[in-house]
């Protein structure tokens, strides 16, 4: 009995939110691709609302509290937009031996997988960002990180990857994956990040 009650209430709330009208302006929160749920904050002329539950929505003018939105309504209003979603971007990390631009064996073995993943994407847009650990001077590491990124860019081009756009950058020792003090050898910081979009 209580369950029926809750269902009726949910249905009532969703009708209330959309007012039975297809043209209402509103936002709906969904699960993130990784399964977690974030939140959106609405600031409208009629108030401020937070939506933090998946499948809940609220009007953009801030006049209604967050409430469940029926799956059919989501499909009707957003089916086309959701179907047009591009393949989600993908990231890879490649690691280097200390002090140079030589890939670790395990990372070198990962290259074919990265190239295959890039080739599956339409008009693939690639960023390659080089990093170092904190051994050595910051200026030297700036150059070393760029050299690492460039080595990877050359490698993937040599293996026949056709990129629509490519950027090669250095973050030197400024963007550590694992926080360390200065002059610390840390294999996880000697890396190149590849973003495939």
């Amino acid at each position: 009995m209580r369950r029926i009650h809750a269902k009726l209430l949910a249905a009532f709330l969703s009708i209330g939110l959309l007012g039975g009208c297809a043209s209402k302006s509103y936002v709906v929160l969904l699960d993130n691709p990784d399964g977690s749920t974030g939140a959106v904050v609405i600031k409208g002329s009629k108030g401020e609302q937070v939506v933090d539950q998946s499948g809940h929505g609220a009007a953009l003018d801030g006049s209604t509290r967050a409430a469940p939105v029926a799956a059919e309504t989501i499909q009707r209003d957003f089916g086309s937009a959701m179907a047009a979603r591009p393949i989600l971007p993908e990231r890879f990390l490649l690691y280097f031996e200390s002090g140079g631009a030589r890939l670790t064996e395990a990372s070198a073995a990962l290259l074919p997988k990265i190239i295959a993943a890039a080739n599956r994407r339409p008009a693939v847009d690639v960023s390659i960002i080089g990093h170092t650990d904190t051994i050595g001077k910051a200026e030297v590491n700036e150059a070393l990180a760029l050299q690492r990124a460039q080595v990877i860019a050359d490698l993937i081009k040599a293996r026949g990857l056709k990129v629509h756009a490519l950027s090669v950058e250095s973050h030197g020792e400024r963007n550590l994956l694992v926080a360390t003090g200065d002059e610390v050898s840390e294999p996880r910081n000697r890396r190149v990040e590849i973003s495939l979009r």
């Binding site: 936002v27 929160l29 691709p33 974030g38 939140a39 929505g57 209003d77 959701m82």
Partner: peptide
Amino acid sequence: RGTHFLVNVG
């Protein structure tokens, strides 16, 4: 706040 959502503007 870091998330996946839908927006409709009528």
